[in-house]
Simulated scan of single mutants.
Amino acid sequence: MARILVVEDEEAVRDFCRRALELDNHMTVGAADGGEGLDVLQMEAGAIDLLLTDIRMPVMDGIALALAAARDFPKMPILLMTGYADQRERARNLESLVRDVLVKPFTLAHLREIVGKALKKD
């Protein structure tokens, strides 16, 4: 299965996403903000199959992370998640880089479905 990086500043949401994805036998790595997520991507040097990141985070937001990830790893699918309407609008400008935007709150089934679709597009 896939190796997925989950970047989310709220620990409960990050853990929920990781557990949900591990139910589908994916391996997950967690990061608490975009800066930490970018460090993980660079350390893993292409070993991450999918980036799932929140948009609104401290240090580096998910959009800046998505731009850096797309630059350094152009074949890696990227999914964004947010609970804020203004952040969804910002994500619309990234349609060529981002596979989808998950709107919080989302269900376990919806998360698993969106991730499955993003991984199948490769």
Rank of each mutant, 00 (worst) to 15 (best):
M1P: 15
M1F: 05
M1E: 09
A2F: 04
R3Y: 01
R3W: 00
L5Q: 02
V6N: 01
V7N: 00
A12Y: 13
D15S: 08
C17G: 09
R18E: 10
R18Q: 12
R19S: 06
A20R: 13
L23A: 10
L23D: 13
D24C: 06
N25Y: 10
N25L: 11
M27I: 13
M27P: 02
T28G: 02
V29M: 09
G30I: 06
A31M: 03
A32M: 08
A32S: 13
D33G: 00
G34C: 05
G35R: 13
G35L: 12
E36G: 01
G37I: 10
L38I: 00
D39F: 01
V40S: 03
Q42D: 07
M43R: 12
E44V: 02
E44L: 04
G46H: 12
D49C: 04
L51G: 01
L51P: 02
L52K: 09
T53G: 00
D54T: 07
R56K: 13
R56V: 08
R56Y: 03
M57H: 02
P58I: 09
P58W: 10
P58Q: 13
V59D: 03
M60A: 01
M60H: 07
G62P: 08
G62A: 08
I63D: 05
L65A: 02
A66W: 05
A66Y: 11
A66V: 13
L67M: 14
A68V: 01
A68K: 10
A69V: 05
R71T: 06
D72W: 03
D72P: 03
D72F: 02
D72Y: 00
M76N: 06
M76D: 05
P77M: 04
L79F: 08
L79I: 15
L80V: 06
G83M: 10
A85N: 12
A85P: 07
Q87P: 01
R88Y: 02
E89R: 15
R92W: 04
R92G: 01
L94I: 07
E95Y: 06
E95R: 15
E95N: 10
L97S: 11
L97V: 07
V101M: 11
L102T: 15
L102E: 08
P105N: 11
P105E: 13
F106R: 12
T107D: 07
T107I: 09
L108T: 12
A109F: 07
R112V: 04
R112D: 04
R112Y: 05
R112K: 15
I114V: 15
G116R: 10
L119H: 09
L119E: 11
K120F: 04
K121R: 10
K121Q: 12
D122F: 00
D122H: 12
